[in-house]
Simulated assay, not measured.
Amino acid sequence: MIEVIASGIGLGIVLSFLTGPAFFALLKTSIEKGFYGGVSFAFGVFTADVLYVALSLYGSSYIAQEREILFPLGIIGSLVLLGVGIHYIRKKVTIKRTKCLSKREHSGYFIKGFAMCIFNPTLLLYWISVTSGVVSISSNFDLKRIIPFFACVLLTQLGIDSLKAFYADKLSHKIEECTLNKINKFAGALIIVFALRLMYELVFTHTII
């Protein structure tokens, strides 16, 4: 079991260094709303990852047989991400040094993190590839080992995302509004490019990997 935990933590650290729209959104949220706002966002991402890992472990065979369900899901997800990206580009950011958030605001950032990931069908296929790869190269992995393994992976990612939020918050006082707006526009542009690429691949190549 110690080997399973160590392997899960190791893979979680590696996967935590992969960047994407959620990475920049996490940094932006932490800079704007502080550590707790960033952690709320990170918990939303974590919850989406948990659902997708569970789905990929228990339903990958069905998804492989019913791949046509991914096309409408991908189109909807692309449009949602496109809207998020446009919103980020158009939104003018003002830095507020008071970072005490209400329960409603915490819930809002949790939902933003969750929605950004749950409407991204490539994340589902990403976790399917990770889970199937781990299981295929580990013949002695049974359910009692797989669940602790991926629990360690996901919890490690959550911990590192929390560290990202912490340091982004600590450095936020050195960031001026113009710099934050540039970060906002860059994050929005990245999300738009990602959404358009996803839509292109769905329509013209009929795949999302």
Rank of each mutant, 00 (worst) to 15 (best):
S107Y: 14
L101A: 02
S107F: 14
E66F: 15
R67N: 03
V53G: 00
G44T: 06
I95P: 00
V80T: 03
C100N: 15
P72W: 15
V50L: 07
I89T: 07
S107P: 01
F41W: 04
E32T: 14
S61V: 09
F41G: 02
L51H: 00
I76D: 05
G44P: 04
L79M: 12
L55S: 12
E105G: 03
K91A: 03
F41I: 02
I75W: 06
K103D: 07
P72L: 15
I69E: 04
I95T: 04
V84E: 01
F46K: 11
E32M: 11
G44R: 07
K91M: 09
K33L: 11
L82Y: 07
K99V: 10
Y58T: 09
I63W: 11
V53T: 05
Y62R: 07
V50M: 07
P72A: 13
T94L: 08
K33A: 06
H106K: 01
H106T: 01
T94Y: 14
K33N: 09
S102W: 11
L79E: 09
A48F: 06
G74H: 08
S102F: 13
V84A: 09
V39W: 01
L73V: 15
C100R: 15
R67V: 05
F46R: 11
A54R: 01
A42Y: 02
V53M: 02
A54N: 03
Y52W: 12
H87C: 14
E68K: 13
S56P: 10
A48L: 08
L79D: 05
I86Y: 05
G74R: 08
E66D: 10
E68C: 08
L101W: 00
D49T: 07
V39M: 05
G74M: 05
V53D: 02
L79N: 10
L79A: 11
V45A: 12
G34P: 01
S78C: 11
G37K: 07
L82G: 01
S78L: 06
G74F: 03
K103N: 11
F35H: 08
P72T: 13
E66A: 13
F71P: 00
C100P: 08
V45T: 09
L51I: 15
I75P: 06
K103H: 10
L73P: 06
E68T: 14
I76V: 15
K91R: 13
L55N: 08
L82I: 10
V84H: 08
L57Y: 12
G44C: 05
S78G: 09
A42L: 10
G59Y: 14
H87V: 14
I95W: 03
I69F: 12
S78H: 05
I75C: 13
F41S: 01
A48K: 12
V80E: 04
F43M: 08
G85H: 01
L57T: 12
G59S: 12
G108E: 00
S56R: 06
V50W: 10
